[in-house]
């Protein structure tokens, strides 16, 4: 048995973990709470891509992981700059 045999289990575990995080998108309560799960998605997707790059000997998937590393940041910044500005009257 090689260590590669562990990879599918690991990937399955991470995917299940990711989907559990979707509960936060459903329940909120604030918009920021929902955004947190895209953060979780970004990190977990990087992990999944790195694992798959290894299992399937496809180095190109590591470049996709690189894009994912920056992706969550883009949406989070768009969120803070556009959607979630301070209300009028708050400090």
């Amino acid at each position: 048995m090689t260590i590669d045999a562990v990879h599918p289990w690991l990937a399955l575990f991470l995917l299940a973990n990711l989907l559990a995080g979707l509960w936060r998108v459903l329940t909120g309560p604030t918009a920021a709470d929902r955004m947190l799960s895209t953060q979780l998605f970004g990190t977990t997707a990087v992990a999944l891509l790195a694992i798959e790059a290894d299992t399937r000997a496809m180095p190109a998937l590591r470049d996709v992981a690189l894009v994912f590393a920056l992706l969550a940041a883009i949406t989070a910044v768009a969120f803070v700059r556009r959607v979630w500005q301070p209300r009028e009257g708050s400090k």
């Binding site: 955004m35 953060q39 990190t43 590393a69 969550a72 940041a73 989070a76 803070v80």
Partner: peptide, 9 residues
Amino acid sequence: ASASVSHVI
């Protein structure tokens, strides 16, 4: 990225 995002949020 995630340290900056967490600060910003």
